[in-house]
C-alpha cells in the first residue's frame, strides 16, 4: 500500500473544504519566512557583506559597485547562492510538510492539483527566489496574477499546478 505523506492533500480538500488562502495570510506567512531566512540562512553572509559593502546612501552604494566590478560580481554570486538556499528552504519544507514556518503560523498549506505534491512542483513555485533573468520577471508577474486570479494563484503556482489553501482540521 502506498504510504500517505503529510503533503498528500486531496484535490477536494483544497477547493471545497479549506479553500484558497487569503492574500493577507499569504503575505504575512511570506514575511515570517523572510525573517526566518534572513535570521538563519543569511547569517554567514552578513559578515562578508558588511566588509565589502559601504554603509551609504543608495546612490553612493550604486556608484561604489559600478566602480568595483569584482565586488559586484562577488555580491551577485552571494545573492545567487543565497537565492538557491532560500528556494531549498521553501521547496523542501513544502514538499515534506506542505508548510513552511510562516505557513504553520498562519495556518495555510500548499496543495497539489494532482494527488501528490512533488518536489519539482515545490521548486517551480519558488523559482522567483532565484535573482537571475528570467526568474526576476516573476517578481512583477507573480503578485499581479495573485491579485487577479480568484484562487489567489501566482503564475509559478499555476505552472506548478499548486495552490495555497487554508489548513483544514
Amino acid at each position: 500500500m502506498k504510504k500517505k505523506g503529510l503533503s498528500d492533500i486531496p484535490k477536494e480538500y483544497a477547493f471545497n473544504k479549506g479553500g484558497p488562502a487569503s492574500k493577507w495570510r499569504r503575505i504575512i506567512a511570506f514575511i515570517i519566512d523572510l525573517l526566518v531566512v534572513d535570521f538563519v540562512l543569511f547569517f554567514p553572509f552578513r559578515g562578508i557583506l558588511t566588509k565589502i559593502m559601504p554603509t551609504a546612501s543608495f546612490k553612493e552604494t550604486y556608484s561604489y559597485l559600478q566602480s568595483n566590478p569584482s565586488i559586484s560580481k562577488t555580491i551577485n554570486i552571494i545573492m545567487l547562492f543565497f537565492g538557491i538556499l532560500t528556494l531549498l528552504y521553501f521547496a523542501i519544507l513544502e514538499w515534506k510538510l506542505g508548510q513552511t514556518i510562516g505557513k504553520i503560523f498562519t495556518r495555510i498549506t500548499v496543495a497539489s492539483q494532482t494527488n501528490k505534491l512533488r518536489f519539482w512542483q515545490c521548486a517551480v513555485r519558488s523559482l522567483f527566489l532565484i535573482p537571475v533573468f528570467p526568474f526576476v520577471l516573476l517578481w512583477v508577474i507573480d503578485p499581479i496574477l495573485m491579485f487577479l486570479t480568484k484562487t489567489n494563484q501566482r503564475l509559478s503556482e499555476i505552472l506548478s499546478k499548486t495552490m495555497v489553501v487554508n489548513k483544514y482540521n
Binding site: 538563519v40 540562512l41 554567514p44 553572509f45 528552504y89 523542501i92
Partner: peptide
C-alpha cells in the same frame, strides 16, 4: 533539520 543542513551549506 532542514534549517541546520541549509545553514551548514551557507557557512
Amino acid at each position: 533539520v532542514v534549517l541546520v543542513i541549509l545553514l551548514f551549506f551557507a557557512f
